Computed example of a mutant assay.
Amino acid sequence: MNERKEEEREVLDAAMLAGHILLENGAEIFRVEETMDRICRRYGIESCSSFVLSNGIFTTAGNQREEMFAKVQHIPVSGTHLDRVAAVNQLSREIERGSLTPGEVRDRLVLIQQMPGKSKRMQILASGVGSACFCYLFGGNLKDAAAAFFPGVLLYVYVIYLFGPHLSKLVGNIGGGALVTALCTLLYMLHLGDHLNYMIIGSIMPLIPGVAFTNAIRDIADGDYIAGSVRMLDALLVFFCIAMGVGMVFGLLNRFTGGGFL
């Protein structure tokens, strides 16, 4: 009997950890709830019930035959790591096939949680390439795209070494928008680009929380109005802060040039 209780608690802890990893790394609410439910039911726990918000998980279990269990975890709104989400999804499929014990599931989840992200060098390079590609995609020419590469690179140097460790989300995004606008304006004034608007739009794209915004719409469409609204508000706040940073630089330019620049 005691062994069964220990196994049930191990299963519930594993389900909670799986939900934590998914939610923390950008998965949709329905995916988190479904994965937790699948893990519990696969190991014979029928009474598990989970309530998931965008920044927290509430899990309870227990009836006449099963031990009572309740746990709450707060999960701050953070970035997106879809490789970890994909790894948990693959693990969920293996659990469905019945090839893993609860202890093995827990060990695999710990390994997934510790998966390293992309290197700083790779993130910086990807930001530059992405900025150049978005600039060209939105209508800029090759000269604009080449110019947008450098603000994109410097933007992620700022994000990794200053924004992430030292600045709040609001201040960091305002600073990022201002930095990109100032750099693109400087390159435009040096005639290294032909279209300032496309250069700024392309360079600023690495800051845009596209996955979070898309997931917010999906959550609202699935009826998870609270979680979807929180994610939507978070994404809209980022958009507002970026726009504020861009507007601040343009305002200063207008003031110092007498309105002749724009």
Score class of each variant (00 low, 15 high):
Ser54Trp: 05
Leu236Gln: 15
Leu155Ser: 08
Val77Met: 13
Asp107His: 14
Leu262Pro: 08
Leu23Ala: 08
Gly164Val: 12
Ile45Thr: 05
Gly79Trp: 00
Gly79Ala: 00
Thr80Phe: 02
Tyr188Arg: 08
Leu12Asp: 01
Glu96Val: 08
Pro209Ile: 14
Val171Asn: 14
Arg93Glu: 15
Val153Ser: 01
Leu196Val: 12
Leu196Trp: 07
Leu12Lys: 02
Leu183Lys: 08
Thr59Gln: 10
Ala148Lys: 02
Gln64Glu: 14
Tyr225Phe: 13
Lys5Leu: 05
Ala178Arg: 13
Ile39Phe: 06
Thr80Asp: 02
Asp37His: 07
Ile226Asp: 02
Ile220Tyr: 01
Ala86Pro: 01
Ala216Asn: 08
Ala212Tyr: 01
Gly172His: 09
Met16Asn: 01
Pro209Gln: 10
Ala235Asn: 15
Ala212Trp: 00
Glu67Gly: 01
Phe240Thr: 14
Gly56Leu: 02
Gly152Ile: 04
Thr59Glu: 08
Asp222Tyr: 14
Ile45Asp: 05
Arg231Gly: 04
Glu24Lys: 09
Phe239Ser: 05
Gly223Cys: 02
Gln123Glu: 09
Gln90Cys: 14
Phe134Gln: 03
Ala14Lys: 00
Ala61Trp: 00
His20Lys: 11
Arg231Gln: 07
Met248Asp: 06
Phe239Glu: 04
Leu111Trp: 07
Met189Glu: 12
Asp224Phe: 06
Gly223Lys: 06
Glu33Ile: 06
Gly228Leu: 06
Arg9Lys: 10
Leu142Gln: 12
Ile124Gln: 02
Gly152Tyr: 04
Phe163Ser: 05
Tyr188Glu: 00
Phe134Val: 11
Pro116Gly: 05
Arg231Tyr: 09
Val88Trp: 01
Cys135Ala: 13
Leu155Trp: 09
Gly245Asn: 07
Gly260Tyr: 15
Cys40Thr: 10
Arg231Pro: 00
Ser99Lys: 11
Leu162Tyr: 06
Ser47Thr: 10
Val211Ile: 10
Gly130Asp: 07
Leu17Pro: 06
Asn173Leu: 14
Ile208Thr: 00
Phe51Leu: 12
Gln73His: 11
